[in-house]
Design a protein around this nucleic acid. Sequence first.
DNA 1: TACCAGGAGAGCG
DNA 2: CGCTCTCATGGT
Length: 292
Amino acid sequence: MRTVHCFPARDYDLAATLSCGQAFRWQRDGDAQVWTGMVGSRWVRLRSTVQGIEAETAVAVPEWAWLEHYLQIGLDFDQVIRSFPEDEPMRAAVNACRGLRLLRQPPWECLASFILSSTKQIVQIRQIIALLCERYGERVPVPSGCAPAHKFPTAACLAAVSEVDLRACKMGFRARYLRETARRVTAQDCDLTGLAGATTDSVRAELMRLPGVGRKIADCVLLFAYGRLDAFPIDVWMIKALSELYFPRRRPSLDRLQQFAAVHFGPHAGYAQQYLFHYIRLAAKAASVTTK
DNA sequence: TACCAGGAGAGCG
DNA sequence: CGCTCTCATGGT
């Protein structure tokens, strides 16, 4: 039985939120304002409306707290925006995609996804994850006429898949990292659930013990799964954005940028990061269109 | 065709 | 420490 629910929301740019590179499984469903994807073990279709966000599941659900949490509906968004530094780059970034939100994703899916993200373009990350889910994720019910959908494969499942079979999902050298991390998570060598209450620094240190997880990926998981809104992942795009916007004609080291980010962007630095990330990518896309 | 992608890890001086 | 190289694959 399909169920529909409406979350009242304002300043929520669903398209930017689902396509900005924090989650990799959402797909436009024809209409630009309609998206289908998976949240945990459920197939979900989301529609952006004037009142907020309309959600539809394939199977009746008793309550909607899980989705409200994932979408972070209750967040005081104005307070986040107000906490940003008042400089020109931030103003431009917020103007470019006001309403962009950070999701709160399941830790294992987020961790595994970002292990697969290293030196891959977002389009390719999506392809790899789609293959992985199709081959190793449990099937879930979908409304009639919709494409088949799968859960994200569990750590226990992936720990049991051979490296060769993982490589067949186009992930290349990341296969060994994913498999070994899956094994350690399964063996409780790393307790992803237990990390929820720890300090940000200790969660980061714990994540970085895992193979294939360095500072950047750990910060992504802190930000997108553990809700540490001060975590500030710096990737090649952020090096470009911070260098051009805040250090013109200089060549700051990665450490210098990390240090700058930690003091400059305030308590919601991670949110500021995502705005800058989206902004610089939009600018790059616009530039490439002009070049053609 | 070259270059590069939401990096990490290992080796080197 | 900081630098360089490799890892695998495909988009642009």
